[in-house]
Design a protein around this nucleic acid. Structure first.
Lengths: 215, 215
DNA sequence: TATTACCGACAGGCAGTCGGTCTATGCAAA
DNA sequence: TTTGCATAGACCGACTGCCTGTCGGTAATA
């Protein structure tokens, strides 16, 4: 029997299915037939709502983008959180465990999904640094940081973190990983002209309170 | 008439054609028929030499990788060049104009070639930092730099430079670009614990001697 | 009645397979 | 040295099955 729904509902239904399928098989590995079967609609319906397969991906990425940036912005706007902690939380919400977007990102970093990954990367690289830069400026006014290039620093931080800690581009043992985190924090301190250890101290709280101590 | 060649020659012939085709139309946009036509061989021949289309891409990337890393290593090994200048030259050989690999990289940074780009990125991110780290250690011994994390610094530098200056992920005006270069150099000075301006001074020579003054 | 969500057969193009053909090379016999 | 022969592997092109996107038509809704 023919089921008719509102266009927006149907679109979201399709995106939900596609979200899961892309996660399992990647973009290229997922055929439109897979999608049709999963959603339970006909070819024509799919192409009534989306003009191409890539168009579906773009819509999916839009959903991600909004969630990601909104999530980051929400954390960033909470001025009750101390500057340093706020920065770390924003970064973590994007890249590392503990963020609400963990599941979202989880299956994007597969070699199959290169194009999708690149598009997400673009969103992050262009969307997150502005948010962080605002916080940094606040920190500069408070005398915590000192840099003539807050934006470029944040760009560097975000690009590095999202590449090394998020992707599989760099293969690391667990040890290499944690030593890289230490180095990263120290490097960020230098970039921001922060007092040595000022970031590291706050980091400690997160590293333990978030992963290890939960076992 | 049937032309028989040595396997290696034929392979390179195919890779040359593919190099050009991928550059023009991207990986997905290039059909195996395009390749067959360009090289002047039959389907069976192509699949006699390569087991799949992706296998062709991997072989092409291997060629790039060897050229890139070898080129970088060659510059890095020339101990007659002052440390700072050598670093800049290595980075430039990879990313910016003036390097011999300019043409190679030129058409990789298109949205179509996401997978290829990701694979090249992997080569760069894992191959270049070790080379640079060696130079940095030399610089530390000479008292030019001071950092407990030379490798991680170089990783950060390489990842940032290859993402921002090489890709189209960040859209910039020419002005934004050059201001980003200034910021980048200053940030690298901080990371390496170099004297302020010590990198910038050497940079100046390149920026002008390489592009502007040639018009 | 008009709009729009929905349908499914169809076309064109694609990557990869497979059985078979041709050619260069090495070796043995003349 | 020349001739005949066998083997390996470079080469061929028809074929298969799948995949994306189209299109004319149908059913539900407002």
């Amino acid at each position: 029997m023919r089921v008719v729904k509102k266009a927006e509902d149907r679109k979201n239904e399709i995106l939900d299915a596609v979200d899961e399928l892309f996660g399992q098989k990647g973009f290229d590995g997922t055929s439109t037939n897979d999608i049709l079967e999963k959603v339970g609609i006909a070819r024509g319906t799919l192409y009534h709502h989306f003009k191409s397969k890539e168009d579906i991906m773009d819509a999916l990425i839009d959903r991600y983008a909004v969630r990601l940036i909104d999530g980051a912005q929400e954390v960033a706007a909470d001025k009750s959180i101390p500057i340093v902690e706020r920065i770390i939380r924003v970064v973590m919400a994007l890249n590392l465990s503990g963020g609400s977007s963990e599941q979202i990102m989880e299956h994007i970093h597969k070699p199959q999904n290169a194009l999708m990954h690149q598009k997400i990367q673009k969103v992050i690289i262009n969307g997150v640094p502005p948010i962080l830069t605002e916080i940094i400026r606040e920190g500069i006014q408070q005398g915590l940081f000192s840099t003539p290039f807050p934006y470029e620093c944040m760009e560097m931080v975000v690009i590095y973190a999202s590449t090394v800690f998020d992707d599989d581009l760099v293969v690391m043992t667990e040890k290499e990983r944690s030593s890289r985190i230490v180095a990263f924090v120290c490097n960020v301190e230098r970039l921001l002209g922060a007092e040595s250890g000022s970031l590291m101290d706050v980091m400690g709280m997160f590293g333990e309170g978030d992963e290890s101590s939960r076992d």
